[in-house]
């Protein structure tokens, strides 16, 4: 839990009842030019550089932990190549924040 200062250590007792949007991230690897904006700006630190090369010989991003994504769309906004976007999962799956 982000910014959960050491003061609160317990998983909140209502955590299983809280709904947060769950994002699914889509990446068009071949469009990516490896600028890393999406990785840098993601507020939840969801993304990282992958080891693989795309056609242009860049390292496209990959998802570290998709459960962390809250579908804020910031990666879409900052991507200069329209190579990444997120969609909200509608299956209402519950997960711990």
């Amino acid at each position: 839990m982000k910014n959960a200062a050491s003061k609160y250590w317990r998983i909140p007792l209502d955590a299983d009842r809280v709904k947060t949007p769950k994002g699914k991230i889509h990446i068009l690897k071949e469009r990516c030019k490896g600028c890393g904006f999406c990785i840098e700006y993601c507020p939840r630190d969801v993304l990282e550089f992958s080891d693989e090369f795309n056609e242009k010989a860049y390292h496209p991003p990959r998802v570290k932990d998709e459960k962390l994504c809250l579908c804020c769309h910031l990666c879409e906004l900052v991507c200069p190549e329209y190579a990444i976007w997120s969609t909200e999962e509608k299956d209402e799956e519950l997960h711990h924040p």
Binding site: M1, K2, N3, Y8, W9, P12, V18, L70, P97
Partner: peptide, 13 residues
């Protein structure tokens, strides 16, 4: 979309 511990409830909620 962000959930954090609630200070008012001492992080119980």
């Amino acid at each position: 979309p962000v959930t954090v511990p609630n200070e008012y409830d001492e992080g119980l909620t």
